[in-house]
Amino acid sequence: MTQEEFKGLFDKYFDSIRSYIYYRCGDTELATDIAQEVFMQVWEKQFEIQNGKIKSLLYKMSGDLFISRYRRKELEHRYLNSIELDYLEESPEEQAQLKELITKYEKSLAGLPENQRDVFLMSRNEGLKYSEIAERLNISIKAVEKRMNKALSYLREALEYKG
């Protein structure tokens, strides 16, 4: 792999890889570190780039690395309180109401099981189709649908409750 090829790979996948880790852990720094390390490993091991295969491999590597890292981090702050996000300003809601909704949303996201949260946010935040998610995570489309539905019903319930 030349440097140019590596750079191409980085440009194409870095963002979605570190987002994926962020969806799982809610820690921007940890996600960035893991994504960086994954790409470092890709360079050091000089993987052959066969498009399609490399994509799911990157997700697999970052997921594995996340699990080994997270076990350590988990001891430091046991509970994930919320998944923080930045929001674009156009919204029909009134500020106070919106703020409350967002707080609830972020807390609810944290309450989702990891494998539902990543699928849900990959779909919602990055606009990926179910088939794309399935390909990246190397799971079936059916599994993606199932997790999506569970996540959606959980979130709706949590947000509408008292809201």
């Binding site: 962020y22 960086q36 809601e93 947000l159």
Partner: peptide, 25 residues
């Protein structure tokens, strides 16, 4: 048709930009 649609679009609040990561790589 639900409450989730009331949420604005969101982004992850990264502390380091993609370029910064690339440079250290």
């Amino acid at each position: 048709p639900d409450i989730l649609d009331r949420l604005p679009q969101s982004r992850i609040p990264w502390k380091r930009s993609k370029e910064e990561v690339w440079n250290s790589l």
